[in-house]
Amino acid sequence: MTGDASAYVCPYCRASSDPTGASCVSCGAAFDVRRVVSAAGWVKQPPIKDMARLKAGQSRVQISGSYVPVTEVDLAASESIYFAHNTILHLDPSVTLTRMAMPGRWSRAIAGLPVFLMTATGPGHVALSFDHPGETVAVPLQHGQVMNVSEHRLLAATGNVGFQIFESGVTIDTRYGGVRTRSYPIGRYIDQFAASDGPGLLLLHAPGNVLVRDLQPGETIVVQPKSMVYMDPTLQPSLHIEHPNGGGGFNNSTVVWLKLVGPGRVAISSIYAPEIVLGLIKDASACTVQTW
């Protein structure tokens, strides 16, 4: 085996990597872990090994811990990352923290999302962690690549990755006890990250374990809406609603799915909050309905 970076393409992030190391320097996937693929085609994203190192520009990233992993970034001078302020665990006094202007401030506040993000600029170390058990997922973005991410999954992104939010457009209107309520099965907003100024790195946190699937053109899958971690923008989300008991009338056994049609990649987490429908569905965004 040689150290030729072009000789090895990581099966998880598809980036070229140096096979002489212990893990992919772009996403942290270990080289010595057998690829686990379910019969249906779900690839288990291998947890990043304790103390694995990644590269992002001139900065280095090290992931430590196993239950609630810590992502520590050794920022090079003038390089930066941005993140939600409630994920800081520790930092060197030499790191400069600034507030990052956010689009849609009021909309984000109403949706329960962080109203502002923070930017940390090197040199120095800054470490981030979430507040529940799960996995850190590193998604390297190639120049020009765009990735859509569920709300509350962002751990950090390198400063050269563009960020915007847009309305998911996935809604259900229900009536219960005379009250009409609108719910957002995949969240009201989707975070969109774009590597428009060169390659970048996206670091996400997913509760539980993470599974990845590459859908072929026209291939369809339905998943629990809140299990979605990230997906290619080629996957247009819609709903699939199933009525197990013949439907009609008051029926709280209705199941709401997120429907995705390929081509594109989707990643889901094994811990999620199920979408519970209370009352009658009066209206919904684009969806298909199955009554059993």
Binding site: G65, H85, I88, F130, D131, P133
Partner: peptide
């Protein structure tokens, strides 16, 4: 100072050991 709402951090100064936990919000 982040030119906005206060951000408070704990500053620890040596000498000695300090221990931290990664899930700091009791889930």
């Amino acid at each position: 100072d982040i030119k906005g709402p206060d951000l408070r951090m704990a500053e620890v100064t040596g000498p000695g050991r300090v221990g931290i936990q990664s899930m700091y919000h009791h889930y």
